[in-house]
């Protein structure tokens, strides 16, 4: 019996990694010459970095049995604000701090406060704010893209350290910080307690509303930083940027083994979940699968990956 328990624990930690390996092996077999090239591996990481960033944030609302559907719009709005500030002559660092960091935290706080004050499920609140934030983005930009901002900014964010692209370093180090946060700090542990059982957390003296607010602010912050990465990669702030990104973020979090019922999940698995999404996208591109078919395959793979995970979890 104890052996089965051990196997189960191992699967909790390495299950997502196994799924990633299966997908990598599959694509390597289908495209032996191109897929496994080092440049392509770097490319996969680069393509995954924004998904990973958003998924890292999305992890927290899901951890408390909620959800954040507004991450795509937060990405667009924070990116737009940052771009406009830079165009208006702000120093890029300051613009990123105000638009990306401040904007992300503020929009997340709007979600958190609305959830706390109305008592409605985050699904409803963020469904609403998703539309509101997108609308505001369109209004402040006149629905047209903003470009022409500092080359220094674009060069720095899209640059490399050695052979590793800056966004990858950025996403992975942010993941490391959040991993430490969830595993070692009281705040992080309390979020798991809130996710497991809100009422018992409340009666244990955990301020559930404060933790709910913080959770949405983290989600906003991650989407805001993803917004900064996104405008640098595109060289422009698109009002429609990030549309539908919440689906990928949620998929990455769930593929990473996070429970929809709250209280269970790990940051490293979410990173791998993001990589799985990126790998599938990349592999299908290399195999020249037309975009519309890609959507179909992507959806199917997401369902299979999660189904496999749950099947193995149940067998133990």
């Amino acid at each position: 019996m104890s052996q089965r328990v051990k196997l189960g624990k191992l699967w909790d930690i390495y299950g997502t990694l196994c799924i990633l390996l299966v997908i990598v092996v599959l694509f390597s077999a289908l495209s032996p010459t191109y897929f496994t090239r080092p440049e392509n591996i770097v490319q996969i990481f680069l393509q995954s970095s924004i998904t990973i960033m958003i998924a890292l944030g999305e992890f927290f609302p899901i951890l408390i049995a909620g959800i954040d559907l507004s991450v795509g719009s937060v990405l667009a709005l924070t990116g737009m604000i940052t771009a406009q500030l830079m165009v208006a002559g702000f120093d890029p660092t300051l613009a990123v701090l105000i638009g990306g960091v401040g904007g992300g935290l503020a929009l997340g706080a709007v979600n958190g406060l609305l959830v706390n004050f109305t008592g409605l499920h985050p699904f409803i609140i963020t469904l609403g704010t998703n539309a509101i934030f997108r609308g505001v983005t369109m209004i402040i930009s006149g629905a047209s893209p903003v470009f022409g901002f500092s080359y220094d900014f674009v060069d720095t964010v899209t640059g490399f350290v050695g052979f590793v692209p800056v966004p990858v370093i950025f996403a992975l180090s942010f993941a490391a910080v959040l991993w430490f946060f969830t595993a070692k700090t009281r705040l992080g542990r309390n979020i798991y307690a809130v996710g497991g059982n809100k009422e018992s957390a409340f009666y244990s003296g955990i301020d559930v509303k404060l933790h709910t607010l913080i959770v949405f602010m983290i989600s906003g912050l991650c989407a805001g930083l993803a917004g900064v990465l996104s405008i640098a990669r595109l060289g422009a702030a698109e009002p429609a940027a990030g549309t539908g990104f919440e689906t990928y973020a949620i998929a990455a979090v769930i593929i990473g083994g996070t429970s929809f019922f709250g209280g269970k999940g790990r940051i490293p698995s979410v990173v791998i979940g993001g990589l799985i999404i990126g790998t599938i996208n990349n592999g299908l591109n290399i195999l020249r699968v037309p975009t519309f078919y890609q959507l179909v395959v992507m959806g199917g793979l997401i369902i299979s990956a999660v189904a496999l995970d749950r099947l193995i979890a149940r067998m133990r």
Partner: peptide, 20 residues
């Protein structure tokens, strides 16, 4: 309903109040 945290171990359930 209002007592234990189901996703925590015995240790986690005991430690949470003292931590707070």
């Amino acid at each position: 309903q209002t007592g234990f945290t189901p996703n925590f171990t015995i240790e986690g359930n005991i430690a949470v109040t003292k931590s707070v």
